[in-house]
Design a protein around this nucleic acid. Structure first.
Lengths: 134, 134
DNA sequence: CGGTATCCTCTACGATACTG
DNA sequence: CAGTATCGTAGAGGATACCG
């Protein structure tokens, strides 16, 4: 049982099933659309530049990539290293903490690839079933 | 190498790093705010009723819970069983497919609980660092 | 190259009220 | 009890243009 330390408010639990729980928000963050893909890419291929990430994550806008990277940097999951050259050169890389997310995230990503066909066929059956009824 | 089968369009890969990939969407679905919590709750405590789920997921609205459950049912991850009684009685339970998500999702949830304090302190440092600079 | 700034749209989500 | 229906808001997310 970990010491919690938050004594300023009634909401001090880290149980993600409680409302206002910080770990619930964190879970949302790391599970968000672009964050999973950024972390996955940096985990598989190591450090990468902004433009390479943009290519790897087909369809991401500059805005969302920047925003995602900033959040990940702030959360201590990714480092941002600027090389003062012309033209500019910026590298992003997983931190030690970020590395600990590789396995869990990889498992989830692989699950979605491995079971997508099952899910698609389940959707078809559901739609047939409900379309007939109404 | 799995056979893909989709021969109707140029986008037929299940690589989540490709735009328009169905498994990318699925990943978003199962990683979404309420879906993780619903799946987690059903995984930990077995079958549950609507009202019990609503209590377990503190703060969820009826609308979002219904919507989440419908999507999970459609995707073949959860079954919905109606007992024709008065008052109504509906049970939700993980399917066999849904069970396969338990481990990956549990790993991610536990990660967020175990590392939330590290992340919070990283945020503090980042904010101090950037506040001074600007 | 690696951003920031701005504008705009769309959807996630919540609050409330009603129903079989 | 377990929803559906409706409305309203905030933020996610994209397109475009400009900058160090």
């Amino acid at each position: 049982m970990a010491a919690v330390g938050n004594v300023t408010g009634p909401i001090s639990s880290f149980d993600p099933y409680e409302r206002g729980c910080p770990s619930r928000d964190l879970l949302d963050q790391i599970g968000s659309k672009w964050a999973v893909l950024v972390l996955g890419e940096l985990g598989r291929n190591g450090a990468s530049r902004f433009s390479r990430l943009r290519q790897a994550l087909a369809g991401v806008s500059e805005k969302m990539l920047t925003q995602t990277l900033r959040t990940l940097e702030r959360d201590g999951l990714v480092t941002r290293t600027v090389y003062p050259e012309v033209p500019p050169h910026v590298e992003y890389e997983l931190t030690t903490l970020g590395q600990t997310l590789r396995e869990p995230l990889k498992a989830l990503t692989e699950w979605s690839v491995q079971h997508i066909e099952e899910v698609i066929s389940a959707r078809g059956e559901y739609d047939d079933r409900t379309e007939r009824t109404r």
